[in-house]
């Protein structure tokens, strides 16, 4: 696979504040690459530097094998951007907005017309072509925002938190759309606060904090980086907390806590963990209700790597 984006030792300062600290990144063709990190971690700064919107102090950025600059129009022509905030003109209709932004890339009017139609169909805004943005709901606005960024059929698409403040149904539609764009050949760089989204659609993920790339890999690779196996939660109405120390002595147990009538046990590696825990409870006549067991999530990975909850940083 060809390298689409190559960022080497990027340093970006805002006066005394170091926004990006020798940041490195490589995105391959055909990937949906997730950039994960709390607010202020440097995600948007990274994207702005790659897009030529921000100057940087040191380092090198290559896109499609060429050094990126604000005047590299051939590279820019192949890039689409879906901004974090809805970036459209309030005075233009849905159709006109898409036509305008598509027109910044495509000079041929008939081709543009065709692309605009396809973009409208893609985000399913056919019934709202003549609506001005003020008349659209939050979900529809997000879809318009996406259509404006992808109408010119870019090979590389940056999506900066495109699902913020979107209802679950619209969010699923958007995620499906992103997968479709990817299957049509676009490489996608996706930033989000929502772990589950990143986990669901991204083929590789980079975890950022304080301007640094802390870990990079597929979700499985990231989960393997940390010393966690499954997480078990058991509903227990009447639990004697003296058992917590005994449970900690069971094989592979990493941590134990009893919160809100639920016993949470985290394991490292190993098998038969759940069976042994349930046997332990039965032997002591502890009555329990629902039992849940799940593998570690990216939340756990993020917590392990950065030492904090992702949403704490928001």
């Amino acid at each position: 696979m060809e390298t689409v984006i190559k960022v080497e030792n990027l340093l970006k300062r805002y006066n005394e504040l170091i926004a990006l600290d020798n940041f490195n990144l490589e995105v391959k063709e055909g990937e949906i690459f997730g950039l994960l990190g709390p607010n202020g971690s440097g995600k948007s700064t990274t994207i702005s530097c790659i897009l030529g919107l921000l100057k940087y102090d040191k380092g090198n950025i290559e896109v499609f094998g060429k050094k990126m600059s604000p005047y590299e129009y051939d590279i820019k022509r192949q890039i689409g951007v879906v901004m974090q905030n809805v970036a459209v003109f309030d005075e233009l209709t849905v159709y006109e907005n898409i036509d305008y932004f598509c027109g910044l890339y495509i000079k041929d009017r008939s081709l543009r017309k065709q692309y605009v139609k396809e973009a409208i169909d893609f985000v399913n805004l056919g019934d709202f072509e003549k609506f001005v943005p003020q008349k659209l709901s939050g979900g529809l606005l997000r879809r318009l925002n996406i259509a404006c960024g992808i109408a010119h059929k870019p090979k590389l698409i940056f999506m900066d938190e495109p699902t913020v403040a979107v209802d679950p149904q619209s969010r699923n539609n958007i995620l499906e759309g992103i997968k479709k764009l990817n299957s049509d050949g676009a490489t996608i760089v996706y930033t989000s606060h929502y772990m589950e989204e990143v986990e669901k659609i991204c083929t590789r993920i980079a975890i950022m904090d304080k301007g640094k790339n802390l870990a990079i890999g597929t979700k499985e690779e990231l989960k393997n980086m940390i010393n966690l196996g499954e997480n078990v939660s058991i509903e227990i109405l009447d639990f004697d907390e003296k058992y917590i120390q005994d449970i900690k002595k069971l094989p592979n147990v990493y941590s134990v806590e009893y919160v809100n009538k639920n016993l949470h046990v985290k394991y490292t590696k190993g098998q038969r963990n759940l069976i042994e825990l349930l046997d332990f409870l039965r032997e002591r006549n502890v009555e329990f209700g629902h039992v849940y067991s799940e593998l570690p999530t990216l939340d756990d990975v993020f917590l392990e790597i950065t030492g904090k909850e992702l949403r704490d940083g928001e």
Binding site: S48, L51, G52, L53, L54, P70, Y73, D74, K76, R77, I79, V81, M83, Q84, N85, V86, A87, V88, F89, F101, L104, Y105, C148, G149
Partner: peptide, 18 residues
């Protein structure tokens, strides 16, 4: 102006001269 509006950002990432 890039720092003033998102529309400006979107216009500035396009291959149309500023």
């Amino acid at each position: 102006q890039i720092m003033q509006s998102d529309v400006a950002k979107r216009r500035n990432v396009a291959p149309t001269g500023r």
